[in-house]
Amino acid sequence: MDIQSILQALEDTTVAARIRESGSIFPNLESVHVIGIALVFGTIAVVDLRLLGIASHRRSALRLIQELLPYTWVAFAACVVTGLLMFASNATTYAQNSVFWWKMGLLLLAGLNMAIFHLGAYRRIDEWDTILPPPGQARVAGFCSLALWACVIGLGRWIGFV
């Protein structure tokens, strides 16, 4: 089974057809997607700014990350679910949209940036937990994360304009 027929099969599912035919499901999915984006970017930005050396509501970087990350993940999960449903409703069209793939690529890079941080500076966080500004490696991770997520949002908006 080639990719094209998989996409077609996805588009032919009952769920995808329901979304396409209903006038209200798609805008509601978009709204939940935006609320999810706002929480993902909102909470991640607080951590990223702390990594850049801008003080947050608490001194400890570790506790800040541990306290905000659950919100980030729940919101990200909501974005993935609503995103998948919107994609399914017009899978073959989205698959031809280059901006969509740029967005997916940058999402991957944002994940990679997070992984590098967790395997690097985060492992030594007890050395810089309450120090402002944090070490260079953490600041680079914070800056890249802010830039990548802002671009993901921008590209997401551009999908509908090409």
Binding site: I35, I37, A38, L39, V40, F41, G42, I153
Partner: peptide
């Protein structure tokens, strides 16, 4: 949308 994320 970025500003929505900041305010929200």
């Amino acid at each position: 949308i970025v500003a929505i994320a900041v305010i929200f």
